[in-house]
Simulated scan of single mutants.
Amino acid sequence: MVDLSIRGRLRRTVERWRRDYSFQTMAGACVSFCVTLLFAFYHGYLGLCFSSAWHKSIGIFYLLLTAIRGCVLLSEKRNISRPEEMRRICRRRIFLISSRMLLLLDLSLITPIILMALLAKPTNIGIHPAIAMATYTTYKIIAASLHIHKQKRASHQNLLISELRVINFIDALVSILTLQSTLILVNQESSDTSSMLPLTASSSAVIYSILVITTLCMLRNGMAESKATRPEP
Rank of each mutant, 00 (worst) to 15 (best):
S191P: 03
R92D: 04
P83H: 06
R93P: 02
A132K: 08
A117D: 01
D20F: 00
K140C: 04
L48R: 13
L173T: 04
R87E: 08
M116K: 10
S145T: 14
H55V: 08
I170R: 10
R165P: 02
R9H: 14
I148F: 15
H156T: 05
I142Q: 04
V174P: 02
E76A: 06
F39H: 09
P83N: 11
L96E: 11
G44E: 02
A29C: 08
E225A: 13
L38N: 13
V31P: 06
A154Q: 06
M116F: 05
L4E: 05
G126W: 06
F61W: 07
R9W: 13
L199H: 13
A29D: 06
F39K: 07
P83V: 04
G44N: 05
R12Y: 07
Y208G: 05
S22G: 05
S203C: 15
L10Y: 12
L65H: 10
G70P: 05
H149S: 15
I184Y: 13
R19V: 13
G126D: 06
A134R: 05
G126L: 01
M101E: 05
C34M: 09
L216F: 11
I58S: 02
F41G: 12
A143R: 10
R153T: 09
S190I: 03
S99F: 06
C34W: 08
E84D: 11
S202Y: 15
A154K: 07
N158L: 00
E225L: 09
I125Y: 02
L216S: 03
S191F: 11
L38R: 11
T214D: 00
L183M: 12
I207M: 08
L179Q: 08
I125D: 05
T214N: 09
L160Y: 07
Y139G: 05
V166M: 15
L199Y: 14
C90E: 15
R91S: 12
R19Y: 02
F33L: 14
R78Y: 12
Q188K: 11
R19I: 11
E15G: 10
R153L: 10
V174Q: 06
V212N: 10
I113Q: 03
F23C: 01
M223V: 09
A40C: 03
Q188L: 02
I89K: 14
K150Q: 10
H156W: 07
L119P: 06
A201Q: 04
T137K: 01
L37R: 03
L102V: 03
